[in-house]
Design a protein around this nucleic acid. Structure first.
Length: 623
RNA sequence: GCCUCGGUAGCUCAGUGGCUAGAGCAACAGCCUUGUAAGCUGUAGGUCGCGGGUUCAACUCCCGCUCGGGGCUCCA
């Protein structure tokens, strides 16, 4: 903890004489010796992060002492040796001058020794108990308020108007819109405008994430930092691969950038102020670092040093951030919905002009829908919200309507009087959960500031340097949040009486083989091995339990296909398959089942079963 | 972050200012050898979230901390 350090000495006299300048910024002064009598000398060292508030506080505390000592004369004596964590000279001088000025205002006879000089001094200190004091002055609680970025404050003040934009282009104020049949859009609207919200118990996905042994809280970390069990890691990893593949196919170049950055880097200081997030701060020797909350910094700093021309535009650059860190307020963190450390695909596209940008924006809009569809999140599962400045809307109305048209459902519109942050337009796909809460998944925004801020330039047709427009997109939104959406959706299905399930390609166990009795253990194992060869996640239940029990457990684990192997199957070569989707038993050949699964998971990434094939060998991760 | 509720066995949850803190499930051992959602018996398992206080005595009452739920707020 930094503080202003003051060694306060009640002296009979002090005599000092400047010898020579120690630093470039030293003040100009004469070299004649100065003698002061009956004075309180304040040897002062200014540390990093000290400010004028602390200076004032120091003088106030000193004045209290002066009254006790019945003295009204001080000498401010810059004395760097009290600290090994000094502020920069410019800052220190400012703080000391503030002390001087404030002390004079308070009617104290104030002298000050010059800053930045090597001085010699002789001092005689009084013998009473209060003569020697050492104080650390730290900002009081009220002054110590967290550094809140201007962006956060701006968001808090942001006033907007709300509408519903229909695919045909009609823009209807929210209060006049008839939401009949569009409950999710209504929920989103209510949620965004922050009226009341009906909600009560633990979110269903939190119970499910534990019960299915996917992921859990880690009490040994900070809130919102999760631990992933093998099955959860599998799902997360497959989603990561899927999204990354989609981005590569779209033409993005995958890069990797650091997770932490220098708090005092010139471009970053400025950007931090324009981004509404609280950071994790790290101290490392003499540096203050913050953990990234998106891939923006890394990619922008990289692009600043990259040489490219209009010929390479649109330029697409992508990173899967594992992790992005946002120090959310503790009350906002919930399960897979919102964390402090989360995984987010982040893709930027640099465009030369508005026309190119609109075209690119459209491509990405469709791409995002395709990505969500990959997780079996269809259009009825999410709602579109678009936000823009009034100016942008008036000049680009057709463009905005074309997006809603593409979406084929009405969208919630937030219209801002003026640009508050760095973007002039953005949209998100929002899912509504079982508690009627909305959360954004995919998003894309038009950034008109950061190319300048980071001095990212391309060379145009005429050989001139230009700042590109930057699009920021997370094609899926946070990966954790995608899983949240899937679990909340599965729960909703369950409430409707259907068997809850995950998309087949994401299901940790796709097939479970169960022998009717021990006699068929070998056969079950063989079938398991056969299926396994086709890149299908299959396990077999070799535990000494009844068959009924094993079937039940396979069901509670959301296994998609359950095979029971006994004499009949052995004789006929026809297997009986319990299909989770229908709950019915289907008779088919093994090869047919394998084909069906491969067909349904075609084009999706695959990873093998993340646990031992034999159930008796599988540990249980809580749940 | 604020308000509020909670943390008891691996999980879900009973319980009491006092004697040895319970159940179901899971785990483990054994029996059973089974035809599509829970077979039977037994064994083991506890710093009652952590720290402090009040008391002859605290899992129980009080305070602080921590983790979680809900609400507010916020959400890239």
């Amino acid at each position: 903890m930094n503080s202003l350090r003051v060694l306060q000495l009640h002296s009979n006299y002090i005599e000092y004489k400047p010898i020579k300048k120690e630093i470039d910024r030293a003040e100009e002064t004469g070299k004649e010796p100065i003698l002061l009598e009956e004075v309180v000398v304040l040897f002062t060292a200014v540390e990093k992060d000290d400010n004028e508030t602390v200076a004032i506080q120091a003088i106030e505390e000193t004045q209290n002492f002066l009254e006790k000592l019945e003295v009204n004369k001080i000498l401010l004596y810059p004395y760097a040796h009290l600290s090994n964590n000094l502020a920069k000279p410019a800052v220190a001088l400012k703080v000391i001058k503030t002390m001087e000025k404030y002390a004079k205002e308070r009617g104290i006879e104030t002298y000050r020794a010059p800053f930045g000089w090597n001085k010699k001094f002789t001092i005689s200190i009084k013998g009473h108990p209060l003569a020697e004091q050492f104080r650390l002055i730290q900002p009081t609680e009220a002054q110590k308020e967290e550094k809140v970025s201007k962006a956060l404050e701006a968001e808090e003040k942001m006033k907007s108007s709300w509408y519903i934009l229909q695919p045909n282009g009609n823009l209807i104020p929210v209060e006049k819109y008839d939401f009949t049949g569009q409950e999710n859009l209504e929920s989103l609207t209510r949620y965004e405008i922050s009226k009341t919200r009906a909600s009560q118990q633990t979110p269903p996905h939190i119970r499910l994430m534990k019960k299915l042994q996917l992921v859990d809280y880690e009490p040994g970390s900070d809130p919102g930092n999760l631990r992933w069990y093998p099955k959860g890691r599998l799902i997360k990893s497959l989603i990561e691969q899927f999204v990354t593949n989609a981005m590569l196919e779209y033409g993005a170049m995958e890069v990797e950038t650091p997770v932490m950055y220098d708090f005092h880097h010139p471009s970053l200081v400025d950007y931090l102020d324009r981004f509404p997030a609280r950071q994790y701060i790290l101290k490392s020797e003499d540096k203050d670092l913050f953990l990234r909350f998106a891939a923006c910094f890394g990619q922008f700093l990289m692009l600043h040093d990259t040489q490219f021309s209009y010929r390479q535009l649109p330029l697409r650059i992508y990173e899967l951030t594992r992790y992005s860190f946002r120090r959310e307020k503790s009350g906002e963190i919930t399960g897979l919905r919102r964390q402090r450390a989360f995984t987010m695909p982040d893709c930027h596209a640099l465009c030369s002009n508005l026309k190119q940008m609109k075209n690119e924006f459209n491509i990405r809009f469709k791409l995002c829908m395709t990505v969500l569809q990959g997780f079996e999140l269809e259009k009825e599962d999410y709602e579109l919200a678009i936000r823009f400045t009034k100016d942008f809307y008036e000049e680009n109305r057709d463009f905005i309507v074309s997006l809603v048209n593409e979406f084929r459902k009405p969208a919630l519109i937030e219209m801002l009087k003026e640009k508050v942050l760095y973007w002039i337009m953005k949209w998100e796909f929002n899912v509504i959960d079982n508690q009627d809460k909305a959360s954004a998944l995919s998003t894309d925004q038009i950034d008109v500031e950061n190319a300048k801020r980071y001095d990212i330039t391309y060379v145009d047709e005429n050989g001139d340097r230009q700042h590109p427009l930057i699009l920021h997109c997370s094609p899926s939104g946070g990966v954790e949040r995608c899983i949240y959406a899937l679990l909340e959706k599965a729960y909703r299905e369950q409430q409707k009486g259907k068997a809850p399930t995950l998309p087949l390609w994401l299901s940790p166990t796709q097939v479970r083989v169960i022998p009717v009795s021990d006699k068929f253990m070998k056969d079950a194992e063989e079938i398991t091995k056969t299926i396994n060869k086709s890149n299908i996640r299959v396990s077999f239940d070799d535990r000494p339990q009844t068959m009924q029990r094993k079937v039940r457990e396979a069901e509670t684990e959301w296994v998609n296909y359950v095979l029971v192997i006994g004499q009949k199957e052995k004789d006929s070569g026809i297997i009986s398959v319990r299909d989770r989707l229908t709950g019915k038993i289907r008779k088919m050949k093994l090869a047919e089942l394998v084909d069906e699964i491969l067909k349904k998971t075609k084009g999706k990434p695959f990873k093998p079963l993340p646990l031992p094939e034999k159930l008796s060998k599988q540990p249980q991760f809580r749940g």
